[in-house]
Amino acid sequence: MTQNENSYPVVEAMKAGGGWNPLWDGLNEMDPEWTELYMKMAMQPYRSGVLSRKVIQLLCIAVDAAATHMYAPGTRRHIQAALDMGVTPQEILEVLKLCTVVGIHSCNLGVPILVEEMAAHERRQAAS
């Protein structure tokens, strides 16, 4: 099947609407059928009506801005969309502040290791 606008409507709609990430181009070229199916699944929250458009944009901001993702173009696109629909800068800032706690996990992991290694270092120093 060759890729054209009728074969992959979700991907084409994302491209036309500015929601396409150019990093997906290679995947789309290599397996357009799979990419279409994945994007159809990923767009379900937008189409289901279960969550409001505002909530979806705020969640997308949190995901894109989180330390584990840090995707600036998506963060910008979702902030613009949120502002355009009337979300306040204060609401967006609260989401950004909330998503920063994802980074606390590096302290949850690293600080106990640091404490253990400091104690081991002190023991080695005392033994020598």
Rank of each mutant, 00 (worst) to 15 (best):
I92C: 03
W34G: 08
Y8L: 12
K15H: 04
A120F: 00
L59P: 01
H121K: 04
Q80P: 00
R77A: 15
W20Q: 02
Q125D: 06
V102L: 09
V10K: 07
H69D: 03
I113T: 08
V55K: 09
G86E: 05
L83S: 02
M41H: 09
E116Q: 11
L98I: 05
R124I: 03
M85R: 02
E91V: 00
L93A: 11
N6Q: 13
T2Q: 14
A72G: 10
W24V: 05
V50A: 11
E5W: 01
L114C: 08
S48A: 14
E29L: 11
A119F: 02
M43D: 14
A82M: 07
E36W: 09
A42S: 07
A119Q: 12
L58I: 04
C99N: 13
N28T: 13
R76V: 11
V95Y: 01
Y38M: 14
D84E: 15
P73E: 07
Q57P: 00
R77H: 14
I92V: 14
L98M: 13
G19S: 09
V111Q: 03
P45I: 09
N4E: 11
V115P: 01
P9S: 07
N6P: 03
A65H: 07
M39H: 14
G49P: 04
P9R: 04
V11T: 15
M118C: 11
M70E: 13
K40I: 01
L98N: 12
G17F: 00
T68D: 08
G26P: 04
S128L: 11
S106H: 13
P45T: 10
L23T: 09
N6E: 15
V111N: 05
S52D: 02
P32T: 00
G110L: 03
A126I: 04
E94S: 10
P112L: 02
S128N: 10
N108A: 09
G86C: 10
M39S: 12
A62F: 02
V63W: 01
Q44W: 08
S48V: 05
R124K: 12
V102E: 12
M30R: 15
M85A: 09
R47K: 13
I92K: 02
G103V: 05
T68A: 14
N28F: 14
E36N: 11
S52F: 09
V11K: 07
D25N: 15
H78P: 06
S48H: 00
I92L: 04
G49K: 05
N4S: 14
L27D: 03
G17D: 14
I104Q: 09
V111Y: 04
K15L: 03
Q125N: 11
D64E: 14
D64P: 02
R47A: 14
A120L: 10
L96D: 10
M30C: 11
Q57S: 13
P89G: 11
A81K: 07
K54A: 12
E122W: 00
G103F: 01
I79H: 04
M14Q: 13
N6I: 00
K15N: 08
E33M: 10
A81S: 13
A119W: 01
P9Y: 04
N28S: 12
C60K: 12
Q57V: 01
G17L: 05
E36A: 09
A13D: 12
L98H: 06
Q125H: 06
